[in-house]
Design a protein around this nucleic acid. Structure first.
Lengths: 349, 349
DNA sequence: TTGAAAGCGCTAACAA
DNA sequence: TTGTTAGCGCTTTCAA
């Protein structure tokens, strides 16, 4: 078995509290004593038992991060932001993937609650209201990331996808297009609708109204993006512009456009939410003339954990519901050196 | 403070051990007693303290996963494989990003060792030999993922990138190309060299030898891929085929080819390692006529954790050094319906 | 089927 | 500067 304080104490001929003091530097220890203790620690390869320490001190320096799926770039970036911030503050992160399944979410919340983590940063599923209410009752510190559940009084860090959708749409309109289409997904919740709302608002600001047959709602998948866009292209005349609500839909939609021989932006201008940019250094997308909104996933993670740690540290300020702006990148019209379209490398002779 | 066994016991008028038995179902408890206990648990909203349980029972159901950076798709997929397998076996995962920095790695290993995690799954940095040797001395269970450090006697799960490089190169040669170029990166270690070795072997099998000026080695970045490929294109005549050692290099290389107006595969056939496919459902790359090797990152994570859990469970079988094969995908020559090149959607009028 | 006593490895509180 | 005592919340061991 691993050495304990007691073993070290015996070898160094001191009491265990003295060893504890050396280990934690929690109080002065005579230089000579300290040296003996350190020698004993070295000899026994002593490593403190954090479990015991946590139990006794009622402290815990691990946080739980509960996200739908780290395999999705958006959540990956958020997770990394969370981990970086936690690391900087001396906390570790316990990772949980829910796959947006409320059952998995509930089990994970139970697991981390048993472990008495200091705090939980959670991207709630749509069925978590009761779960979160129970956390509130237990006074378990937590912060909601990216999604807010109504009537749950906890800090929330999210991004303003509604505004981003409004701005993307406004850019399409500024470019002179009028008949704008929308391809989005629905979780059954408010998320996709935020974006549709932004789309509608931008149109309304110009006295326009979305045409029903130009608004396509499906799932948040690439397959759905392909299908919805294909539907969209069946009716003539084609829309002049298209807003796509997320990365996966966008990949499918671009594929569908390619398959149909629709040129971007000559035949159809495209604006989209896209989260892969951090991953690919923007370059693949930089080749394509799209206007892109990137949500600040990394910052949501970072600032969410920062808020959580502040609460753990005793911050009792008013609840925060913070909304971060999206970054909008226009290609190729914003001073970046013009990039050749991928096409030039790929067109068959 | 949260309720404890003692609180529940008092309320239910039983001893704490009885409550413990109910909670853990570790022994039969009379039905009536059990009901009283459950009622008390419900009333007090009792949640067991895992920390105390772990301390007393000397058990721990969390594993540490130490990877370079979950933001990189390859490691993300591995992390997800690890988490899925851990979840299936009732373990939780403590996530650590090292950024391939031995200092960060050492700190994280210390942190998780203090926490007495049941096991560690680690993608070692190049400086971790001593660190891992210390883990062996402490009899801390661990498994190496993706990279093996020589002389460290622990299970290893990795993929055969050398063979994959050989096969990719063979495909280029089978297509009739002879002057093959190589763009790779170096960590200072054996990784990139595995791929270069595979490249060389495939050439040798045809009685060919790599031309020195066609072998470019830089860093594992997109920028480096761009620079190396640009260098490559300066000398005439151009090579006929190109093998690229990883995703980031590939993105940069494709960019450079596009910028130089080199057509793929008419002017230059390209084969590459690529890990983004899981993320984008293959579709963006499906548009480009590349031959791609995808390493089984998810399975490395999954099987690594499975091995680790087996060891924790007492498996004392011989050390395993398992090598998984890469998946090689040829576009468009393998029965998949031909996909339109992205170009058709993007070519300016 | 239930319980009492001991102790996991550590730290808080007090004492010397 | 160092030590003693008690106990964190639970499980193990032994006993009834």
């Amino acid at each position: 078995m691993a050495a304990t304080l007691k073993d070290v104490a015996k070898l160094a001929n001191v009491s265990i509290i003295t060893v504890s003091r050396v280990v934690n530097q929690s109080s002065y220890v005579h230089k000579a004593t300290r040296a003996r203790v350190l020698a004993a620690i070295e000899e026994l390869q002593y490593v403190p038992n954090q479990t015991a320490s946590n139990l006794r001190s009622r402290q815990n320096d691990t946080l739980a991060l509960i996200v739908p799926d780290i395999t999705t770039t958006f959540w990956t970036a958020m997770a990394r932001g969370a981990e970086d911030e936690a690391w900087a503050s001396g906390y570790g992160v316990f990772l949980c993937n829910t796959d947006d399944d409320p059952v998995k979410e509930a089990r994970y919340v139970d697991i981390v609650t048993r472990r008495r983590v200091a705090g939980i940063a959670i991207v709630p599923t749509l069925g978590s209201a009761e779960l979160l209410r129970r956390l509130l009752r237990r006074r378990q510190q937590f912060v909601m990331l990216h999604r807010k559940i109504v009537d749950i009084d906890a800090d929330t860090i999210r991004s303003d996808s509604r505004r981003a959708a409004r701005e993307l749409t406004a850019r399409l309109l500024d470019a002179g297009w009028r008949r704008c289409a929308y391809v989005g997904g629905s979780l059954g919740g408010s998320l996709g609708h935020d974006r549709l709302a932004g789309f509608t608002e931008a149109l309304a600001a110009r006295g326009l109204v979305p045409e029903a047959q130009l608004v396509k709602i499906g799932e948040h998948t690439q397959r759905s993006g392909y299908a919805l866009t294909t539907q969209l292209l069946r009716d003539k005349p084609l829309p002049e512009a298209l807003l796509i609500a997320n990365s996966r839909l966008a990949l499918g939609a671009l594929h569908a456009l390619a398959a149909a021989g629709v040129r971007v932006p000559e035949d159809l201008a495209v604006a989209t939410f896209f989260e892969l940019s951090r991953l690919v250094d923007d370059s693949r997308l930089a080749w394509t003339p799209l206007t892109i909104a990137t949500l600040p996933a990394y910052d949501i993670g970072r600032l969410g954990i920062r808020r959580l740690i502040a609460r753990i540290g005793g911050d009792t300020g008013p609840l925060e519901d913070r909304t971060l702006a999206a970054r909008i990148t226009a290609h190729p019209d914003e001073g970046a050196k013009p990039l050749l379209p991928l096409s030039q490398a790929l067109v068959p002779a």
